[in-house]
Design a protein around this nucleic acid. Structure first.
Lengths: 233, 233
DNA sequence: GCGCGTCTTTGACCAGGATCAATGAACGGA
DNA sequence: TCCGTTCATTGATCCTGGTCAAAGACGCGC
């Protein structure tokens, strides 16, 4: 599969229609195509703003504060677009959770390339807005939720993105480790593990191996996620 | 001053040139113009995604988790654009920190209006990206920094946005209360107050009344903000 | 200029989650 | 299949920041 073909799902998703092949070619020329193995980090040029398209696999965007403390800012799955800023306050890196296939674009050149296509530009804006809204929800969790609520939020959020519904239950295969979950939720691995144990004994979920989780009571879990209850219109 | 005139600085900032008057008129027709007094909240329609332009004044974007816990997701000042999503996980409101003048746009109609102008669309994308990157930096602070680092980050960040440099010092007039600062940093007012006291006695800053702060040692403060030290290229 | 209400500061104590430590389970390679 | 390493779990203890409480400062309206 060549770069242009890899790009097609991206362009289709962005503008909601088959893309003009000329644009696809133009973008393909800008892209750096990379395959990263599990645990590896994407070869990012941190002097410029970038967009990264996750063609296959999944990644974590990791920010480092001083003293080696790490905060995972977001997880991404196939089809997602990640905006990676040039280094400023914190140092960012993009790491693969499993064998992953990426296309890396310099932001300014990508802007220029798609400037003539409002549909694509609007689609990209929409993706960035979604990322912003997710990031805000994460900030609420980090600032104002306790350990149990954070883990519940995480599980409910992952269920929405990569879960498979089976009757009233949802099964999940988490590509990230307990450490990744902890680094995403602003907790330690021990605390995350304790929360999993409590939820297991409460009958809310069952685990099988490291990665496989079955949410037995998704609604209960969601209720404990500390989300505001939506008032009916 | 009419709506179109209020819009001009926005459009100029977005596309880096005097705007086509036709577009300004079109956008002005979409905008709901509102003046909100100190402490008041903007009359937002939470059923649709919105953009809000802060023409004058300053605001806080507040998210409510359940149990009345509030997290301030961002502060905004004159010239900023805020994206406010329709309610989902958390309930958002936009509150004025001082008498404030706003223009409220429905996001979808704004998209349609500026679709024909790539420069404006790209400018808007740039603003949203800046908001995303700020939000990520905030997430790092909320997830992985202690109280002292959070307050130091806050002060350094505000100094960049609304500070006045005087010699090696920076003076600030904070429009937000200690409670706002606490709700922004995921702390309590008591903890914020204690951090201010410590920094005062360390000689890092001086306060005068509620709002006026003089950073005596901005560099020391920045060093304690827990940001990663930039390695030289 | 005065007085009251609100916001801030300070103190004492408490608790949730971090840290330190050790055991146990999973996975991958030989 | 077995073994070794890594990852997850559980337990004991500590500490940062939250909670409760009270006094003090600020600023607004009269």
């Amino acid at each position: 599969m060549n770069k242009t073909e890899t790009l097609e799902p991206l362009l289709t998703a962005l503008c909601g229609a088959p893309p003009p092949s000329q644009l696809a070619g133009h973008l393909a020329a800008l892209a750096q195509e990379v395959r990263v193995s599990r645990g590896g980090s994407a070869p990012l040029d941190h002097r410029r703003d970038l967009f990264v398209y996750i063609a296959q696999g999944s990644t974590k965007l990791v920010a480092s504060a001083s003293a080696g403390r790490e905060q995972i800012v977001a997880f991404h799955f196939a089809g997602d677009i990640v905006s990676v800023p040039a280094h400023s306050l914190h140092s960012y890196s993009l790491n693969a959770l499993e064998p992953t296939h990426l296309l890396i674009f310099p932001a300014s050149e990508m802007h220029a390339a798609i400037a003539g296509n409002p549909a694509v530009l609007t689609g990209l804006l929409q993706r960035v807005l979604t990322a912003l809204h997710r990031c805000r929800d994460k900030a609420v969790g980090l600032g104002r939720k306790n350990a149990g609520e954070r883990v519940a939020s995480f599980l409910v959020g992952m269920a929405e993105r990569i879960g498979h519904a089976e009757g009233g239950e949802i099964t999940l295969d988490l590509p990230m480790s307990r450490r990744d979950i902890a680094d995403s939720l602003g907790l330690t691995i021990e605390t995350v593990s304790r929360q999993f144990s409590e939820m297991r004994s409460a009958g809310w979920l069952r685990t099988q191996g490291r990665a496989h989780v079955r949410l037995l009571q998704p609604a209960t879990l969601a209720a404990h996620a500390g989300h505001v209850e939506l008032r009916s219109p």
